[in-house]
Design a protein around this nucleic acid. Structure first.
Lengths: 189, 189
DNA sequence: TCAGAACGAAACGTAACGTTTCGTTTCGAG
DNA sequence: CTCGAAACGAAACGTTACGTTTCGTTCTGA
């Protein structure tokens, strides 16, 4: 009773995610359709729908593979102020780069309308990252390296302004802005 | 050379916006279509498209009429700390109420995919509100009632966490949370 | 070697889009 | 009061993407 293949997507999972990512880069998120993804990946539409219920679900996996894992974790060098700056700078870069910006904005937009997608997004991205960050913040607070306040609120004060600029105001996200934000919140300088 | 009618939407503008709002309350943002709005408002589809290029544009006007103007301005009682608390509490309520939440989340979601809508949203909602708030914040800083930092950053530290909870994390927005946020940012208590 | 599962390609019905057509209503100018 | 232009509602249109079904083929493991 061996698996026919790894997890799911015999010869196709990788090709499908790559096709979706490439099409998004070429035409923008909104112009990508399930038909286009299937054609580009040389896969039948039923195969696509067998594993992903919607275009948003495909792009959730694209983002998990290409964006979240490599680039979004809070680093740990021992210097919390420096790590936070690095972390927020990473978000600023991610939100500025046209490709990852396109992916994230499109995915978040879809999640506003698709409840199931929103749930998946929170479970697969939000929760796991937040859990790790909270540990780190609480430890730093205990060591007196961060202001004593609700650690959830502290994390939100750092992370929500970049999201706000990405999704609401559209203001640019520069390195200087990232540093000013961290300094204002943790009170160093 | 009199206008046939006021601005636009002779006998229909009000009926159209009400139809859109009601349908959103009944079925949710995603399930509302231009056809449904037209039928409910007893209006032809061409009339609808003559004045609003998309469903998102219709809901932008709904939000402007029903949400932004009545409920989203920073009050001015002279006590800045109290005014900020009232203001952020207002956002928390707005983001919690099912109807306004549905409207805002749907509209912001559409704006992530529709560039023109995003521009309209920023010009009609974002800019005007921010301009007024900045004046108030700068004056309070000059009076020593608020911490001295970039006023744009200060406003973002207050306003972005509620937006983050609405659009990204989905965490609840309580009155207690609103007050804790304001206190953490302006340092009173 | 063979049976069954998974596959790609194609076709399907459905739904919403945005536009066009057409006959009617409205309203101000004469 | 009459007339003509503008705006209107209703209906029909072609188009596009959706998500599903069908069918013949390919691959896999027993």
């Amino acid at each position: 009773m061996t698996e026919r293949n790894s997890g799911r997507g015999p010869r196709s999972r990788e090709a499908i995610l790559r096709a979706a990512s490439d099409l998004c880069r070429e035409r923008g998120y909104a112009a990508v359709t399930m038909e286009l993804i299937a054609t580009r990946a040389r896969v039948g539409k039923p195969t696509l729908y067998r594993w992903w219920p919607s275009k948003g679900a495909v792009f959730l996996d694209v983002v998990l593979d290409q964006v979240v894992e490599p680039a979004i974790e809070l680093p740990d060098t021992g210097d919390i102020a420096r790590d936070l700056r690095t972390w927020i700078r990473g978000f600023a870069e991610l939100f500025t780069d046209p490709h990852s910006r396109q992916l994230l904005v499109g995915l978040l937009g879809a999640a506003q309308v698709d409840t199931e997608l929103a749930t998946m997004l929170r479970e697969k991205v939000q929760r796991p990252l937040q859990a790790g960050n909270q540990k780190r913040i609480i430890a730093a607070q205990a060591a007196g390296e961060l202001p004593a306040m609700d650690p959830v609120l502290l994390e939100e004060l750092l992370i929500s302004p970049p999201w706000y600029r990405l999704l609401v105001s559209g203001e640019p996200l520069t390195v200087e802005y990232a540093d000013a934000l961290v300094d204002a919140v943790i009170g160093s300088r």
